[in-house]
Amino acid sequence: MMRSRLVAQRLAALFLLGCLLFNYPLLALFNRDIEVLGIPLLYAYVFGAWLALIVLMALAVERGGRP
């Protein structure tokens, strides 16, 4: 029970994080015509943040609550 609640709280936090990452104003910070390692900054940021979010979500549910 405690474990499942912890998972739930982590996922809720990740949801809020995602809402922040993929919207104005954070998005505007990266909306510049710069390249990172040859990739446009905006693309690198969005895809990078997206993948990070997915990894965190996977960690949250699959290893949820383990000490």
């Binding site: 996922l11 809720a12 990740l14 949801f15 995602g18 993929f22 969005v46 997206w50 979010l53 997915i54």
Partner: peptide, 21 residues
């Protein structure tokens, strides 16, 4: 539109984060 196609897939990602609930 460049990156404008992505929200259609970011949204579901966020929903799945809430999917637990």
């Amino acid at each position: 539109t460049g990156i404008g196609f992505l929200p259609i897939y970011l949204g579901p990602t966020l929903t799945l984060a809430l999917g637990w609930f």
